[in-house]
């Protein structure tokens, strides 16, 4: 009759990890960290750039609207005055 618990402890004795296991883990860890860093960098870049891009686009829109309004008012004013002057040409 055997001592089952003792035999079981023997059967389940710790196994050596496969050769090179630790190196493979360290390599995988470096690779995963590098990937994470890349993602983090990309995410940070996007987080910084998106609002900046939006602000820049908005600024461009504002500048364009302002320039267009100035041009429109100048043309309107100039043309109105031209019409009025043709109607009442200045006496020499």
């Amino acid at each position: 009759m055997i001592d089952l618990e003792r035999e079981l402890a023997r059967a389940l004795r710790p196994q050596e990890a496969p050769a090179g296991f630790a190196e493979r883990v360290l390599r995988a860890d470096r690779s995963r960290r590098a990937r994470r860093r890349t993602w983090l960098a990309a995410a940070s870049f996007a987080l910084v750039l998106l609002p900046a891009g939006w602000a820049y686009q908005r600024h461009q829109q504002q500048q364009r609207a302002e320039a267009q309004l100035r041009l429109a008012l100048e043309v309107a004013s100039e043309r109105l005055n031209l019409a009025l002057q043709r109607l009442n040409p200045p006496t020499e």
Binding site: A67, R70, L73, E74, V75, A76, N81
Partner: peptide, 29 residues
């Protein structure tokens, strides 16, 4: 050929006075 269309109430006298004051060169007219 020139068309200027302003939509909304506009004071013609004030519009006339803006000429040359909008910070842009003459529009080649």
């Amino acid at each position: 050929l020139v068309v200027v269309n302003i939509v909304g109430p506009i004071d013609l006298e004030k519009l006339s006075s803006l000429e040359g004051r909008m910070g842009i060169p003459k529009v080649g007219l």
